[in-house]
Design a binder for these strands. Structure first.
Length: 420
RNA sequence: GUGGGUGUAGCUCAGCUGGUAGAGCACCUGGUUGUGGUCCAGGGGGUCGUGGGUUCGAGCCCCAUCACUCACCCCA
């Protein structure tokens, strides 16, 4: 056993059969946006460091201690993306997508990077699928996105997924609330780190999971009680629409997400099967992000769903769909001549859309049949010298054991018919 | 950055108060020179994470180190 190289800390390889579940999750997440008019967008995996900092927020933990930042040979500071929203907005602005019809609806799927101590459900390299609707304040977009995500989890069969909903207000009402909250928090008995957070981003203190902190937060002022009329109306509208859509949710006035750009609607899908982590996906409205990064006002809403975490949740519920690759037909040639002859036949089968594999490396018949059996194929096509002389193949049903001789010329048609 | 747990075969793990390495599964071969699953027999695979120490002798004890893992802060 030589262990010269291993996957870098906090990363993991996706290999069969488990990788099948990841593919299934990605497909399920992407299916909704595709059906709802979202176009596919793909942006670079690294961005100008300044974009990440301004997009995600200088005060966030992501920017202060979790970024992978490097200088390229041209002296530019680049950062591996820790999330996609800033990139998507940047791309939309750069290509003038916002000058056309609004909203601009986009979805993406890809890898993201945060430098953290890994643990269950938290990796340095992780995978998300996301959707963003740029350029509209319409509450029905908020509701549409939440519904799309809820629908994806439902279709994956996840029963233990709960939706938390909150409104974070806007520049009209949040500053006054923020000040009230700071006054309250400064009266508490907190450690130095948390005191620092009170100054920089007091809302996130509400999200602290430590019992000794939670205990003191009981009487804390909540933003839900301090929303301005416009924000309140928007939030009420989102909730009414979700009710109409049959999406159940829990109002969580303490829900604060880790990114600075959120305004108004904020939501998180949580699950208990991830270890200490709970969020499998989340999102919200970010009406100020575009202007934060130098663009025009472009009120927008979006989500991103964690592929890895969702897989963990599915495992916890016993609904993972791990599966090895499987072909319908497995070809077993006996001897070099037969092997030679079957290579193009195999190609013809595949061209005809019949998934098929064959035995390689000159194994004996017993070994070849064993390989056929383990491939999970429904039919084995056995061809030896005797068959070649008669231009036939032995077609064996691997479940029943029945075997018939079929003219080689009819093999593809025959199999296609049997398999439909 | 802080704390706990674990490192023995490809995988899951046993290994007693220290006496020179094991099981199950997987893989390969044969029993059946043209037939898989079950069964039987055999086989390949390990510097016991690494380095040092104690000892006549270390997988086991001591020290260090690395890796993995879980948790805290925080987050998808």
């Amino acid at each position: 056993m030589s262990r010269s190289f291993t996957a870098p800390k906090g990363t993991f390889d996706l290999i069969p059969p488990e990788s099948a579940t990841f593919l299934r999750v990605r497909d399920a997440f992407a299916a909704g946006p595709k059906l709802a008019g979202y176009g596919y967008v793909e942006t670079p995996i690294f961005e100008d460091t300044a974009l990440i900092h301004r997009g995600v927020g200088e005060s966030t933990d992501i920017v202060t201690k979790e970024t992978y930042t490097f200088t390229d040979r041209g002296g530019r500071s680049l950062t591996l993306r820790p999330e996609a929203t800033a990139s998507v907005v940047r791309a939309a602005l750069e290509h003038g997508l916002h000058r056309g019809q609004l909203p601009v609806k986009l979805w993406y799927s890809g890898s993201f990077f945060r430098y953290e101590r890994p643990q269950s459900g938290r990796y340095r390299h992780f995978s998300q699928v996301g959707a963003e609707a740029l350029g509209a304040t319409d509450a029905s977009l908020d509701a549409e996105l939440v519904w799309l995500a809820a629908e994806a989890y439902r279709r994956l069969g996840l029963g233990g997924c709960r939706l938390l909903l909150n409104s974070l207000g806007d520049p009209q009402c949040r500053p006054a609330y923020r000040q009230r909250l700071q006054e309250f928090l400064r009266g508490l008995d907190l450690d130095d780190d948390t005191r620092g957070r009170v100054d920089i981003n007091p809302l996130r203190v509400l999200d602290d999971k430590r019992a000794e902190v939670r205990k003191q937060l009981h009487g804390a002022p909540l933003l839900a009680d301090h929303l301005c009329a416009e924000c309140q109306e928007h939030y009420d509208e989102v909730r009414a629409l979700l009710a109409d859509l049959g999406v159940s949710y829990v109002d969580d006035p303490r829900l604060v997400r880790g990114l600075d750009y959120y305004t108004r609607t904020t939501f998180e899908f949580v699950h208990d099967g991830l270890g200490a982590q709970s969020a499998v996906g989340g999102g919200g409205r970010y009406d100020g992000l575009s202007s934060d990064i130098g663009g025009p006002s472009l009120p927008s809403v979006g989500w991103s769903l964690g592929v890895d975490r969702t897989v963990l949740a599915m495992r916890a519920e016993g609904i993972a769909v791990d599966d090895a690759p499987r072909c319908a037909v497995f070809v077993v040639p006996l001897g070099d001549d037969a092997h030679r002859r079957m290579v193009p036949v195999l190609a013809t089968l595949r061209t005809a859309g019949v998934s098929s594999d064959m035995v390689y490396g000159g194994r004996g018949l017993k070994g070849a049949m064993k390989a056929a059996d383990r491939s999970g194929a429904r039919y084995a096509v056995i061809v030896g010298e005797r068959d070649l002389r008669g231009d036939v193949a032995q077609l064996k049903d691997l479940a029943s054991g029945e075997q018939v001789a079929v003219p080689l010329a009819d093999l593809v048609d025959n199999l296609q018919e049997k398999l439909t």
